[in-house]
Design a protein around this nucleic acid. Sequence first.
DNA 1: TGACTCACG
DNA 2: ACGTACGTGAGTCAG
Length: 882
Amino acid sequence: MSKKMVLIDGHSILNRAFYGVPDLSNAQGLHTNAVYGFLNIMFKILEEEKPEYLAVAFDVHAPTFRHELFKEYKGTRKPMPEELREQVPVMKEVLQSMGICTVEKAGLEADDILGTLAKRGEKEGMEVALVSGDRDLLQIASDHIKIRIPKTKGGKTEIEDYYASDVQEAYQVTPVQFIELKALMGDSSDNIPGVPKVGPKTATDLMVQYGSLDNIYAHLDEITKKSIRESLAANRELADLSKVLATIHTDCELDVTWDMVRLQELFTPEAYTLFKQLEFKNLLSRFEEDAVTQNDQKETFRMTSELSDAEEAFSAAEKAGKAAFLVLEDGRADGDFAALALASAADQIWIFIPQGFLTKEYLTDKLKNLVKKGVKLSTFQIKNQYGYLESDETERFFDVLIAAYLLNPLKNDYSIEDIANEQLGLMIQSRQQLLEKLSLVKASQEREEAFREYAGFAVYTIFMAEPRLREKLRETGMEKLFEEIEMPLTRVLHDMEEEGVEVRPEELKAYGDALVERIEELEHSIHKQAGEDFNINSPKQLGEILFEKMQLPGGKKTKTGYSTAADVLDKLAPDYPIVSEILEYRGLTKLKSTYADGLAAYIGENNRIHTTLNQTITATGRISSTEPNLQNIPMRMELGRLIRKVFVPRSGYVFTDADYSQIELRVLAHMSGDEQLIEAYRSDADIHRITAAKVFHTPFEEVTDLQRRNAKAVNFGIVYGISSFGLSQDLSISRKEAAQYIEEYFKTYPKVKEFLDREVENAKENGYSVTMFGRRRPVPELKSSNFMQRSFGERVAMNAPIQGTAADIIKIAMIRVWKRLKEENLKSRLILQIHDELLVETAEDEMSLVADIMEKEMKNAAELAVSLEIDLHTGKNWYEAK
DNA sequence: TGACTCACG
DNA sequence: ACGTACGTGAGTCAG
């Protein structure tokens, strides 16, 4: 049987995919739809053809001979959209990662490369499938060269196939005649002029009748239609030129050998990494088979319930002085676990299943003993495992999750599989795959095997990745950040989560009930005014009612319809009672569903709510709070703020709440070294008022409220990465005015401008921003050729060092406050952090001690050019303590 | 599942 | 010419 070769027209298929696949992008904001679509088409073809050879051809965007020739005809082709352009290098990288040969050569069009390779293959006796999105290549079709044209229709890909006979059937001409057909009729998208007045219909008729261009001209006088005859006669040169342009070269010089285009294993670790980055989740399943079989490491994993095995393993770990462990919980009960995995060398991988004499207690005792003996332990997500360690020390612990986050804080999630892939180049079974297997497979033998493999690879990965991650942290200057801030913080967060915060369920319920009354009232009134019942919570329905049925001004905005966002409705509220009622309705339903009902669902034992504090979510280094989010409890509006009354300390305790005063602006003053700003803070007066006085050239005493408000907005804007547009939006002033404010601000604080410019410059050069404590935030957007994305990158580069440094500082404060409470054997506990605020549940007899501790540790968390100030309050609920 | 809206710092 | 402020999480709707 003859061998098969698949050739792909890179740009053409990428282009098809781009327009055929809905917009996709990954977490980093990179568009991926064209690459995704390309791969789907490619995989489909490969499955059908099962070829031995595969190559993808691309145009080089440099002037070529043919481009030179028809330069003057250019201009009809639209420029490639940025969203597509950025995917071209990604596409090439993906192909390279799968070992697929990409062919491009200056001076050659992709068509020429494809034509040449196709003919070469045919000569060697191959069957060739040539995949392209446009029909130019039909002239190459033969009995052994099949042109395949994919059509993406509503998600489904259908492929039209053309051998020579199919071309004949569809166009009534042979592939060779197809060239001259095109020369006659022209092709605007390919910049082939053609003969004026001759369209597809006439061209086909002519070719069918006379067979060739030369023969047409030989029989010019036979052509009956006068206008056509005259146009042909007058444009012989143009016809010849068109033919040259339309002809694909099949004899180009290419440095391509059959060896280079031979298809290899596509699903390589490199490709896996890329697919992960691009978030091609369903394409990843193609790697699964290989993932499981690729590594024979798993043969050395030992799963056991024997006491003697445990003795052996733990003493080996103690001797080694370092080990990786992982407790695998089965999710049935808190603190209950299905297995303990332990690794002390690459070939010392154990999975202990508690059974008989090998009890959980025995295993955790063994683990605690390792800690006591000073063994260095690495694990994944240590925050959830302190219960098994019973240690306040973190110096000898290493959490690979935290390390992976610091090295790239932009990822959505961090899994052991990813770490295996990125650090060890290994593809391992994921937890998801394990769960799937467990749900499918009934045979206990197989289930055990799957579990052994998962647990083994997990702990093996941690053990092997630790030194590499440590080295990378050192290389990037984040070792101290890791050891002195992030690792100790894991311990603090563990306690905070466990501690939780008490709420009063009855009061929460009463609060919700009070809301319902007013909500129903508003609902009736709104429906009455609209003249019909509709779902006020549906932006779609609401937009239609307001802007179509009721004809309110200021419609149109978003992709899906009218914008009904608060800032739009705010403008209408004074003139239309229904709008202000809608706004009130929105506010109340938000309070009801998110807070009254939402929080109630999380109340657990002792009326306490235990949030999850996530340390590996944000790009800037802040922590986040989920299930429930206790970092966005209402504050700005009085009605919402009242919810804070249901958050109470346990009996015999009060709340002590302390928040930093403008920590980000103070960080800015320090990092920029601006004498004026530093001096402003040393004077201990209202910073916004001082700024207003300076910026608006007004005596301090005479600064109006409006001036102060504007100055405050500018201060905020600076921290966010100022833009005149953003500021004008916020203040409802013209862009010009906003620009003036900013200019005056920079004149007032010149080093602030220098600082911000420098941060952008550095980030552009390095590819990342960095905080005072060495935390990095990559800013890939700065490299984008898209104006909007690049501007975003610039703002991020200005904001990240400031927000990130503030985050570093409060983390230090948290660790120190926690430590002091612990060391001084106090009953009081740190329970919440809200970015610049700490909440301590304080024993009544420890109130002044706690206040002292918080004040001292928060103020001294960092040594800045300006002092760090806090506002501290106590109260018998959170409302009062703020 | 993504878009929209809105709560916080 | 482009068209936004920085960082999060949750509830709801609609496809």
